[in-house]
Design a protein around this nucleic acid. Structure first.
Length: 468
RNA sequence: GGCGGCGUAGCCAAGUGGCCAAGGCGGAGGUCUGCAAAACCUCUAUUCAGCGGUUCGAAUCCGCUCGCCGCCUCCA
């Protein structure tokens, strides 16, 4: 079965075939590191994390690149306000971003290039564009001349004349055309600057991605991704620069994730309606966010709401419980049991959903269908050994498929229960046997204080880490 | 104004020509139970914003109407 992806460039679903058979090269626009990242950034990162995971699951080798924009007006402004060097500020937020990603289970990219470490590549690209007549210099600035590149506007479906008509673009007398964009900005006092053929300055935003993507993935790679708010002008400009330079398509497939809305409006710094990832993980389990995000197709907008995340957390519990129960039943949880024949259909359904432009809501439906079957199977496990094996095999399949979506990672690696907790559980069992309910309830409270929960089931007490 | 998209049960959300319109949350009933909680089982949209059309057949295609959102400016 082959993967189909929706390509923004052609506005249709296309069969996915990487340029090099078996090897997928992906570039995703990362964040500008001038502040803490919010759940909108988290969604984007998570969407491409899942895409990347799925392609690996399908047997592709994947080279995944996600950049950091660490030189930019906002970084400079913020650094000046705080009285620290821009490099120090951006480094702080790169660290924060990495911590946040780890907290929500988003894997690091294979390469995470920073703009400031690729200035020579950018200068070289700009020089080529000047030499080829696509760019011009004015007093230390370099601009890309939009009219020289025929295909400008193709990705975003913009009509060049209408762009001009609507022009809310800053009027800058030095540009030949208001729609031209900066490749190189000359340094003003107090700004970080690098030497260049046009004098000291810094790169424009769009040129970073072109230079870094090409450096790590080649002139023409497979997937270029990012939020849909980057389609114009960012990705449009990247295409113009790179393709003017090489004459080859920068990427074969352009994938864009929908926005996160907060109170019916797009979550965004400029609107001030953001929730940082940091703030979020204080209140919710990471997997609850993942389930929440993946419950909507990646191209659609999603309205963020606490209540909705809590719904996801409840749903998630049903899955993690199955995993914990399988561990409790199995002598050797690391030995993954064979997938029972009657459960093999689920993987096919899961793949069919994911093959269709990464339809995670449908894939989750398959996981919950499997969970229902497993729940019934669990009820029979106390009786016989074969039922236990069947259950264990089914749960291992649930974990395998869940991990493709980045779910159930922690639940699956849950180790033993600490001895002190086990002792309390044991004591409580004895108290219950004596019908000493007061003592039993005291012990339950104590167990909960240690961050664990205990529930009584027909087959004995069930112990679990809270929120896992 | 230009471009793109959305409107499916109380809430969220798949489905985009033809088996009973996935799945989750919530709700109702039941099993289990010292209590509590959980879990498990069953049920929960004759109907897909509205109107008209194409078709043997439409939530799915076409047209119109209403409502909502994104991009066109820094933005994941």
């Amino acid at each position: 079965m082959s993967v189909k992806v929706y390509n923004t460039m052609t506005r249709s679903k296309e069969e996915f075939t990487p340029r090099s058979p078996g090897h997928v090269r992906i570039y995703v626009c990362g964040v500008t590191v001038y502040d803490l990242s919010h759940v909108g950034h988290a969604r984007s990162a998570m969407v491409f994390d899942v895409i990347q995971r799925y392609l690996r699951f399908k047997g592709y080798r994947v080279t995944f690149v996600r950049n950091f924009t660490d030189v930019d007006d906002r970084i400079i402004r913020r650094a000046n306000a705080e009285g620290v060097p821009a490099a120090e500020l951006s480094e702080r937020y790169i660290q924060a971003f990495r911590e946040d990603m780890a907290a929500i289970g988003v894997a690091p990219a294979d390469v995470e290039p920073k703009a400031t470490e690729h200035i020579p590549e950018m200068i070289a690209l700009i020089e080529r564009l000047v030499a080829k007549g696509f760019a011009y210099t004015v007093n230390g600035d370099v601009y890309f001349e939009i009219r020289r590149f025929r295909a400008y506007g193709r990705l975003s479906g913009k009509n060049l004349d209408e762009l001009l008509a609507g022009a809310r673009v800053e009027v800058d007398e030095r540009k030949r055309d208001p729609r031209d964009f900066a490749l190189w900005k000359s340094a003003k006092p107090g700004e970080p600057a690098w030497p260049s053929p046009w004098g000291p300055g810094r790169p424009g935003w769009h040129v970073e991605c072109s230079a870094m993507a090409t450096k790590y993935l080649g002139e023409s790679f497979d997937v270029h991704g990012g939020g849909e708010d980057l389609i114009f002008p960012h990705h449009e400009c990247e295409i113009a620069q790179s393709e003017a330079d090489t004459g080859r398509p920068l990427a074969r497939y352009w994938l864009h994730n929908g926005m996160v809305n907060f109170g019916a409006e797009k979550m965004s710094k400029s609107l001030g309606n953001v929730l940082t990832i940091r703030e979020f993980v204080k209140r919710h389990a990471p997997d609850a966010f993942r389930l929440f995000v993946l419950g909507t197709h990646y191209r659609h907008p999603v309205d963020f709401a606490e209540e909705r995340v809590r719904d996801s957390a409840r749903a998630l519990e049903r899955l993690t419980r199955l995993v914990h129960d399988a561990h409790a039943l199995s002598r050797d949880p690391s030995a993954s049991a064979a997938v029972p024949e009657d459960l093999q259909d689920f993987r096919a359904r899961f793949e069919a959903a994911m093959d269709d432009d990464f339809n995670t809501p449908q894939a989750l439906g398959v996981l919950f269908d499997l969970a229902r079957v497993l729940s019934e199977a669990r009820d029979r496990t106390s009786a016989d050994e074969r039922a236990r094996e069947h259950f264990a095999g089914g749960v291992s399949e649930l974990v395998t498929l869940g991990q493709v979506l980045g779910l159930l990672q922690r639940a699956a690696e849950v180790g033993g229960t600490p001895a002190d907790v086990l002792r309390l559980v044991e004591d409580r069992g004895q108290a219950r046997a004596r019908r000493d309910w007061r003592r039993a309830d005291q012990l339950r409270d104590e167990i909960q204080r240690l961050g664990w929960s205990v529930e009584d089931t027909p087959s004995g007490p069930r112990v679990a880490r809270k929120g896992a």
